[in-house]
């Protein structure tokens, strides 16, 4: 295992770059209002979201939040966990070919969710996803990454892809927060428009610094999320 959660040499670097202050834009305010008035009441009263390990979110910044993926609710519920004034520091990494498929969808996802669109196909030096993510972290953003790369079906977690590991290899020392999301895929599965209010849960793990060879990082990320799946 390459997890070095308790290694003091790494804990120092965990607080790197925190304290960066991003300017408040109109977009940020729109997002804050959207979350305060719609998303949070929706999560509390309709979904009845339960959160375990919420304290892990405020320990360090920036971070990379890694989670399993089965629903559009995943991103929304993860974003709903942050204090409203920290919301603009968190960007979900999202597939450009899907979330930028039309002007309208793109405007919506960029404005309300502050997505970091990345290319899945026809990658050029300009749109290189790694570079985009690296730049975002250097600018002071934290990222939400779903390493499965797409929404899974039937409640089983898919294999993790190497993108997030690649990023961690380039930026060692950025802490990872693992998360496991329960029942989101039941509430709003792929291909459905209207959610069914199953109770959903977010389980967050302690932030950790993960290093090593790329394949080791992939494995560590996957087992960190799987570990949270097992607890009950």
């Amino acid at each position: 295992m390459t997890t070095t959660e308790n290694n003091p040499a790494h804990t120092r670097s965990m607080h790197r770059a925190s304290g960066v202050k991003l300017k408040l834009t109109l977009r940020d305010i729109a997002q804050m209002i959207f979350f305060a008035l719609l998303i949070r009441p929706f999560m509390a009263l309709f979904i009845g979201l339960r959160v375990r390990g919420r304290e892990h979110l405020t320990e360090t910044e920036p971070f990379i939040l890694i989670a399993n993926h089965s629903s559009h609710l995943d991103t929304i519920s993860l974003l709903s966990l942050f204090p409203i004034h920290r919301l603009r520091y968190v960007r979900p990494v999202a597939a450009a070919d899907y979330f930028e498929r039309s002007r309208r969808v793109s405007l919506l996802t960029r404005t309300l969710f502050n997505i970091l669109p990345i290319a899945r196909k026809s990658i050029t030096p300009e749109n290189n996803p790694l570079r985009r993510m690296q730049e975002a972290i250097e600018a002071g953003y934290s990222l939400i990454i779903f390493p499965e790369g797409t929404r899974g079906e039937g409640g089983e977690m898919g294999r993790f892809r190497a993108g997030a590991a690649h990023l961690l290899e380039k930026m060692p020392g950025v802490p990872v927060i693992p998360a496991y999301l329960v029942n989101m895929g039941r509430s709003l599965p792929k291909g459905e428009l209207i959610p069914v209010p199953f109770f959903c849960e977010v389980r967050l793990g302690a932030p950790r610094v993960i290093g090593g060879a790329r394949q080791d990082i992939v494995r560590s990320l996957e087992s960190a999320v799987r570990e949270l799946k097992e607890i009950d």
Partner: peptide
Amino acid sequence: SFWAMKEYITLLETRPADHKALVLTF
């Protein structure tokens, strides 16, 4: 009623094919 129904269906073994019927239920 809504909350009770939520608690009940969360514990049910539902099938993906039940989704639209569950929307109607709510």
